[in-house]
Design a protein around this nucleic acid. Structure first.
Length: 539
RNA sequence: GCCCCCGUAGCUCAGCUGGAUAGAGCAUCGGACUUCUAAUCCGAAUGUCGCAGGUUCGAAUCCUGCCGGGGGCACCA
């Protein structure tokens, strides 16, 4: 139980007491932060919910609720105020704030973390770019997102597997092999082949001339994958599972799943092709599994892959896809149903595109022309921290405009540095105080002076952290953590401006502020870590 | 034609399972450095929340239609 949970429970209980026989759904009773500080530390909408059901004016209901809370919260509650259409605003005592900070500090490095009684296993598959070229900026967005989401889910108690699906099978791989060979032979690369500069270095020309096409394609593919892994590593992203599409064919997994679907009566033959009845499970129309030419479609691999994931016993399968794949959601869900599974266990998060501005003749993401901006270039230009924060500060379902020239010029203005700077400042204060003094400060928390408004505001922001993380995890929304980090940094900076820490008399106040600073430092560091951004002690 | 996402300050974007005077960063203007780190702070200015209806005590938020931008609608991957 966090201090806010306790407060929220008290409000729910008081609401139930006022409601009497009248039904109120506990979830709709909110503990909120008022829009302006002078409206109180916290507020609740409960009177607005109760009023129509009790047939009484909201402001009158608020008075009754205030009475209940005064009794149950005792000294923690300084006073209440009824405001606006019938909000009840709560003003909490310094004593409540002291308890709250003690609670934050006792959670230590696990503040905001959650422990699930029955940990749910989640597989997060992301990036999964074809191993036929370097990663572009769209992949960068997916990499930053998938990794941050994984970090957040893990911190919130889930067992997370990060997975990359390697499309190392099929026509695109063959085309890559052909492109490499053409270059090695000094011949023109086919129009629909791969034309980027990187193609030349994948396999030594001499070797490329000797190998058979299949082996060459495989080696070129492996070389590409090595480049991709290196780029991701540099970006701070690591995967637990690298899953090969080719392996699904080599182990017979594809045939097995086709048999299984056939046995369930989910397939049929028409025009010489094998179809899956996806339309029976919510898709617009049925889909081809085996073409009349006898070749499997990529969709068939996807099904075998899904079945493999299902067999590994995850509670949840998260797929992170680009906006161009949204049309496949219905059929993947349908497959889940056709296999006898729960379509809701399969979750597909669509990442909108990154639209590149200001770089003449180049695009953010388009493939094959070899004219797109790569993840490596992005990192070269602005660095990992700025790139990740920039990409993570936006919701996944909004298209991002990226002006690379502007981004480079404004790297120094990236909000990430503001957050890191706040962290470095705190680190500096704590270092000056020395670890002994900081340790002593944690023993007896009790400011002598009344709390400054900035101290209260900073503490309220800290207390919001667990809730923000819960929202970010549930809504698959890492960008909320980025927003939070910035707000917390701003709140600390205001505290820094208003409340001197070192050498303040009386000594108990210095100790209190050291403790508050320590909690702020840990929380900023944690928020940044969950985004994959570093928290330097010096800048 | 059908489906998905978006449209909020000059720019980039939060806020969207309904609440109080709609926010942040950048840019602009005016101030503050013998600092617990000025990569900072203070102040000013900036809005038909795309448009039109509807639901509601209350709508940026929910519903419908329209307009604009992006993406998708293969026996391609």
């Amino acid at each position: 139980m966090t201090p806010l949970d306790t407060l929220h429970d008290a409000i729910r209980a008081a609401t139930a007491a006022v409601a009497g026989e009248v039904e109120v759904t506990p979830e709709s009773v909110k503990l909120e932060v008022p829009p302006r500080a002078e409206l109180g530390d916290y507020s609740t909408n409960a009177p607005l919910l109760l009023a129509p059901r009790l047939g009484a004016p909201a402001r009158e209901v608020a008075q009754r609720l205030a009475g209940e809370l005064a009794a149950s919260l005792g000294g923690a509650l300084e006073r209440t105020e009824v405001a606006g259409p019938g909000f009840l605003n709560l003003y909490l005592s310094d004593g409540w704030y002291v308890e709250a900070l003690a609670s934050v500090l006792s959670a230590n490095e696990r503040f905001g973390a959650a422990t699930l009684k029955a940990p749910r296993a989640v597989d997060v598959e992301f990036v999964s770019a074809n191993p036929t070229g370097p990663l572009h900026i769209g992949h960068a967005r997916q990499a930053a997102y998938g990794d941050a989401l994984s970090r957040i889910l893990a911190y919130r108690g889930y067992e997370v597997t990060r997975e990359y699906y390697i499309n190392d099978y099929g026509s695109q791989v063959t085309k890559l092999g052909e492109s490499v060979r053409a270059l090695a032979l000094g011949e023109p690369v086919a129009p629909d082949g791969y034309h980027g500069d990187y193609v030349d270095g994948l396999v030594p020309a001499e070797r490329a001339r000797e190998l058979d096409l299949e082996t060459l394609a495989r080696e070129a593919c492996d070389a590409c994958l090595a480049l991709i892994r290196a780029s991701l590593e540099r970006f701070g992203v690591r995967f637990d599972v690298w899953f090969s599409e080719r392996s699904l064919h080599e182990t017979g997994a594809v045939e097995r799943v086709l048999d299984a679907l056939g046995a369930r009566g989910e397939t049929y033959t028409n025009d010489g092709a094998l179809w899956l009845r996806t339309s029976a499970h919510g898709d617009d129309k049925d889909r081809v599994l085996v073409r009349s030419s006898g070749e499997h479609t990529y969709f068939t691999s996807d099904i075998a892959y899904l079945e493999d994931k299902r067999s590994r016993g995850y509670d949840r399968l998260v797929y992170v896809w680009g906006a161009d794949h949204h049309g496949y959601i219905a059929r993947m869900k349908a497959v889940c149903g056709a296999l006898g599974g729960d379509p809701d266990a399969l979750e597909i998060v669509i990442q909108q595109f990154v639209h590149l501005l200001g770089v003449e003749g180049r695009t953010a993401m388009s493939k094959r022309e070899g004219e797109y901006v790569t993840l490596d270039e992005l990192v070269d230009e602005v660095g990992v921290d700025a790139a990740r924060f920039f990409l993570l500060a936006r919701s996944h379902d909004t298209t991002v405009d990226l002006d690379l020239d502007l981004a480079v010029r404004e790297t120094a203005e990236n909000p990430v540095y503001y957050v890191q700077y706040a962290h470095a400042r705190i680190a500096s204060i704590l270092a000056r105080a020395g670890s002994d003094r900081v340790a002593a400060a944690l023993v007896a928390l009790a400011p002598v002076e009344p709390l400054h408004a900035s101290e209260r505001a900073l503490l309220r922001r800290l207390l919001a952290f667990p809730g923000e993380l819960a929202e970010a995890a549930e809504r698959r929304a890492p960008h909320r953590v980025a927003s939070y980090a910035l707000e917390l940094a701003q709140e600390f900076t205001a505290f820094y401006r208003d409340c001197h820490v070192l050498g303040v008399e009386p000594r108990a106040t210095e100790s209190w502020r050291l403790a508050l600073s320590l909690a702020a430092r840990r929380t900023i560091a944690r928020a940044l870590d969950l985004l994959g951004v570093s928290a330097p002690a010096q800048m």
